[in-house]
Amino acid sequence: MSPLSIGVLAISMSIDAFVASVGKGTTEDSPGLAMTLRTGAIFGVIEAITPLLGWLAGVAASQYVAEVDHWIAFALLAGVGSHMTLQAWTRAEDEPRATSLWATVFTAIGTSIDAMAVGVSLALLQVNILVIAMAIGATTMLMSSVGLIVGRYVGGRFGRIAETLGGVALLTIGTMILLEHLSAAA
């Protein structure tokens, strides 16, 4: 994967954590530095671990799917991207938000499931998963920390748009992988 693709993927994987952090920020009067860094670290670490877990599962299965791996990568990324986009517009706007440490951990796990699915598809592409996982984790940490602060000031006004853009970016990456493979095979 090119550095640009890794960057787009890292941002795409971080959008839902950013949106969740914006939501958390709307419930806080004044999130301090400690809370901001803690929230970012929780989201970042979990978001970095899940693509590694998905990649390990994908490596175990890759020998069985080598001839259709580009289609699987496309399907997973397109599915996750489509799901992110659909979820952005179908969740309840007044959904209550919990603010405890465990609520943050569970939210981080929930927002990182898509990164696990992406990890499975990355195993089929022979990429350096450690670089990608670190990029995803660092980007998520930064975006979650910023999201907490942004949430305090702008609330949930732009969350759906950001989540939709993340979903569209994943769908685009999946399509690029498919087209790249099909053009190389021609």
Rank of each mutant, 00 (worst) to 15 (best):
M1D: 03
S2R: 05
I6P: 01
V8L: 13
A10C: 06
S14C: 07
A17G: 13
G23P: 07
T26V: 11
T27L: 14
E28G: 06
S30I: 00
P31A: 05
G32H: 11
A34D: 04
A34F: 08
T36S: 11
I42C: 06
F43A: 12
I46W: 05
I46K: 10
I46P: 08
E47N: 09
E47M: 07
P51A: 07
A60L: 13
V65K: 05
F74C: 07
S82F: 15
M84H: 08
T85H: 09
T85A: 15
L86F: 14
W89T: 03
A92H: 15
D94M: 07
R97M: 14
A98W: 10
T99S: 15
S100H: 09
L101C: 12
T104N: 14
V105K: 08
F106G: 13
T111N: 12
S112R: 02
A117P: 07
V120A: 12
L124D: 03
Q126F: 15
Q126C: 14
I129V: 14
V131K: 12
G137C: 05
A138N: 02
M141D: 00
M143K: 01
S144R: 00
S144I: 03
S144A: 15
V146T: 04
L148I: 08
L148Y: 00
I149A: 06
R152D: 00
R152F: 02
Y153C: 00
V154E: 04
V154H: 04
G156Y: 07
E163M: 11
T164D: 01
L165M: 10
T175H: 00
T175V: 05
T175E: 02
A184G: 13
A186V: 09
